[in-house]
Amino acid sequence: MAEPAEIDDINVAHSALRAWDSVVGNAHPEPMPLVHNQVWQVFAEDGRRYVLKRLPEFAPGAGPVDTFRVLSHLQAAGVPVVLPVVTDQATIHTVQADRTYSLSSFVPSDSGNHELGPSAGETSYAVGAAIAKLDRALAECPWQPKSYVDDPVPQALGEALPSLPPELTGPVAPLARHLGATASGLPVQRTHGDCNTGNVLVRDRQVSGFIDIDHLPLGPRVRDLSYYLASRLHTHVNHRQDAERHTAAMLAVLGEYVAGYHETYPLSDRELAAVVPLMLLVEIGSASWALHGWNPDLATYRRSATTITWITDHLDELTDAAALPSTGA
């Protein structure tokens, strides 16, 4: 049975949806499975599908207007993104009961782990290339949204790592100097900033859509690639039945991801060397957030801890796997 707060959320979301009456007609929002944020899928009267999202009270980075302008640029550049659907009142979002909502088209995606599929290498290369195309378009964007600076070394090693238990600080401490040296001083630009596997939708061996592009910090461009790779590795390392087979499949295509990015938006030698260290820094930040963020989650922390331990135990193997394939540039 739904909790009173959940009933209130769905009722307010239903009222907010009326702002798009001419688009969706007599539609009702339904909670999306496997999504923790307040996001609902909407089936319009004409059969089309949409996503209704409650925007956070405080923007994670860029505000709605800046985000809309950047998304417009990305769409014009051929990057697969979705723009908010304009309301019947000619706005990009609506406010209901002091809560702000936006509506966008539903982006289809495949379920499952593509690294284990018959087209694993092709798909991984295509995803790397798509992230590179996104980053290149962001670098060329004339709009400069107000957001934060993403500086992964001090944020992960100076702030996040000291907040973690000894089970993680112990294995990472001997690597701290190497991590700091390889991940510092990298070229910076506007980036996605939250380029995890949930925000990079894949269908038929291609990226079908980038979503939740509302962080948009200034930071190392290669971190978008590392962020995605860390989230994919996180999924495989924590597979309940067959983690060993899953991580082996991930290692087998890691170089294809890097090659796809590099051949689309060439990386310097220093950036290539930083791919794996940044993956570890991403997981350190995730573990700290799981313990000390707005909604601490011990289960999420444990999964990040498992991934961090795996990376520290297999750092050389991971580094070799991330090297460009012999067929790469």
Rank of each mutant, 00 (worst) to 15 (best):
L157G: 09
A129Y: 00
A160I: 02
V172F: 02
L134W: 08
A137H: 07
H178D: 14
D150C: 14
C195R: 06
L179Q: 10
G185I: 04
I131W: 01
L138C: 07
A130T: 14
A139R: 08
A139C: 08
P142M: 05
L186W: 13
Q189W: 02
A183F: 05
S163C: 12
P166C: 07
N196L: 03
L161M: 11
D151Q: 06
L138Q: 00
T191M: 15
I131H: 01
A139S: 15
A137V: 09
D135S: 11
H178G: 01
R177N: 13
E140Y: 04
G198A: 11
R190P: 03
S147C: 10
P152T: 11
V202Y: 06
A137K: 08
Q206N: 14
D135I: 04
A132K: 04
L164C: 13
H178R: 12
P145K: 10
L164W: 08
A156Q: 12
I131M: 00
A181C: 01
T169I: 02
V149I: 11
D150T: 00
G185K: 03
V188S: 14
V202A: 01
V149P: 01
T191S: 08
G128R: 13
G180D: 14
K146L: 12
L138E: 06
P171E: 07
A183Q: 12
D194P: 06
V200M: 03
A176V: 14
P166H: 08
S147Q: 13
R190E: 13
P165I: 02
E159R: 12
L157T: 11
R190H: 15
P165Q: 00
L175S: 04
D150N: 15
A137R: 11
A181L: 14
C141T: 15
C141M: 11
P154Y: 04
W143F: 09
A160R: 04
P166L: 10
L201D: 14
P174L: 07
G158K: 10
G198S: 11
C141Y: 09
V207H: 06
L164D: 10
G170K: 13
R203M: 12
R205F: 09
D135Y: 05
I131N: 00
V202R: 03
V188H: 00
P174I: 09
P152K: 02
P171A: 07
L157Q: 12
I131F: 02
C195D: 13
L175M: 15
E140F: 00
N196M: 01
A173K: 12
P187I: 09
A132C: 05
Q155M: 12
V172D: 09
P166I: 00
P154K: 05
L186V: 10
S163V: 07
T169M: 03
P174W: 06
I131S: 01
R205D: 15
W143N: 10
P174Y: 06
G158R: 04
C195A: 14
V200L: 05
G193S: 12
P166F: 02
S184P: 04
P145M: 08
A173V: 05
A176C: 09
G170Y: 01
E159Y: 10
P187W: 03
R136V: 03
V153E: 11
P187D: 13
E159K: 13
V153F: 06
P187Q: 02
H192V: 09
G158S: 06
G158N: 09
P154D: 01
S147D: 12
